[in-house]
Computed example of a mutant assay.
Amino acid sequence: MKRTSIMTSTLCLVVILSFYFNIGTPNVVSANETLSLHSETAILMDAETGEILFNQKMEQTMYPASITKIVTAIVAIEEGNLADIVTVSSEAVNVTGTRVYLLEDERVPLLKLVQGLLISSGNDAGTAIAEHMSGSEEQFSELMNTFVKEKIGIHQTHFTNPHGLYDENHLTTAYDMAKITQYAMQNEMFREIVGTKEMEWIGEGWETVIYNHNRLLWNYEGATGVKNGFVRKSGYTLVTTAKRDEMELIAVTLNAPSADHAYNDMKALFDYGFDHYHTNVIFSNNVFQSEKGERYVLDEDLYFLSNRNEEISIRVNSLGRLWVRGEGDRIIETVRLKPEESPKETVTMMEDIEEVKEASQSFLDKLLSHFQSILSIFSV
């Protein structure tokens, strides 16, 4: 009996600590099972907090097609010199698929290639970028893989080329693409390019106006980017961001049966997100007073998500931790503040454990009861 009690308490403590410190899998706020999509996998993410508002097989590996170019572009912007002049090779000129009609030995600024890559989905621009930065598509693909693992922290994506043409080992997930996009959209140059609807293109082989292939920039309120794609093996893929008021959302749909299905799925995801959720911010210039009268401040602005029209309460406990709660006393966010006059603070593990107990006692009681019931079944 004593051993059962210890096992139950230990298991519950692990669950509580995992819940409290947000360890492990991505934080899924909701998964509306009534939202019916045509795409095989999908995700809706809040861009600021990274919280997941909708998930449909978001970690299933899929073929990305041209949304691969999101990674090619952010690698070029952050790892390359956009003022470089790139000499186009015959390999780049002869790549299949969509292109900006580069000519062999044409000299093009790297920035212009990135614009042609993202706005007009030029596969030839992707190959030219890869060869300029790494010597070959293969070597640049390794740079892409290292970049997304080390800088973004994703591990279920593997690229074999810079443009997204089909390869059985060229794989990603809806979740990984959302994280990649969340990272890339923090770069102002990337954000500006993917939000460009049209651009004059003057090249040696092509003089025209190129138009962004992402239809939502024209027909969805607040759309800010990003990229669409298609190859036969991947179906129609789409990554889009949209912003209304203070809330920006990222949506990814993979393997839709048609472009119309992909765009309709995207609109359904965004409508769901904007209708049901709201991004809130507590600014760092606020001063908070604890139950004991001590004054505290935030290190930086605190963003958090709530249900739309939900009543929010904010409290600072005696240990200087801020608790944001919604309806039903559910915990939305918690963060340790720093004393107003002292920028440094030593936090002990025991203090955090005490706060876990304070925040989660009723939750703990329910878990204890639940696990004791389960253990009683196995002990019969």
Rank of each mutant, 00 (worst) to 15 (best):
315 R>Q: 14
194 V>N: 06
186 Q>C: 03
160 T>C: 07
187 N>H: 11
41 T>I: 08
12 C>T: 11
133 M>S: 02
98 T>A: 13
236 Y>S: 02
84 D>G: 01
102 L>K: 05
305 L>Q: 00
372 Q>C: 00
202 I>Q: 14
285 N>K: 15
235 G>M: 12
170 H>W: 05
261 H>E: 10
364 L>E: 02
85 I>P: 02
342 S>Y: 12
307 N>F: 09
183 Y>K: 06
186 Q>E: 12
196 T>N: 09
187 N>W: 08
47 A>G: 01
19 F>V: 11
322 L>P: 04
31 A>L: 00
314 I>K: 14
55 N>I: 02
210 I>L: 08
226 V>D: 11
57 K>N: 04
20 Y>S: 09
27 N>L: 15
96 T>L: 12
22 N>G: 06
280 N>I: 05
90 S>W: 07
224 T>H: 01
217 L>Y: 07
152 I>A: 12
347 V>T: 14
133 M>F: 01
339 P>L: 04
196 T>F: 13
218 W>G: 02
283 F>N: 00
77 I>Q: 07
214 N>M: 04
312 I>G: 02
330 R>A: 05
208 T>F: 04
190 F>H: 09
119 I>N: 03
243 K>T: 13
176 D>A: 11
367 L>K: 07
136 S>N: 12
345 E>R: 15
215 R>W: 03
205 G>N: 03
4 T>C: 08
71 V>Y: 07
355 E>P: 00
126 G>I: 05
190 F>W: 10
212 N>K: 08
40 E>V: 15
147 F>A: 02
128 A>D: 10
291 E>V: 11
216 L>K: 09
158 H>Q: 13
208 T>Q: 09
247 M>C: 06
376 S>F: 10
167 D>L: 07
240 T>S: 15
225 G>S: 09
373 S>P: 01
334 T>P: 00
43 I>H: 06
213 H>N: 06
126 G>M: 04
100 V>Y: 03
278 H>Y: 13
330 R>V: 12
367 L>N: 02
335 V>D: 03
98 T>Y: 06
165 L>F: 06
144 M>W: 02
35 L>C: 12
333 E>Q: 15
233 K>V: 01
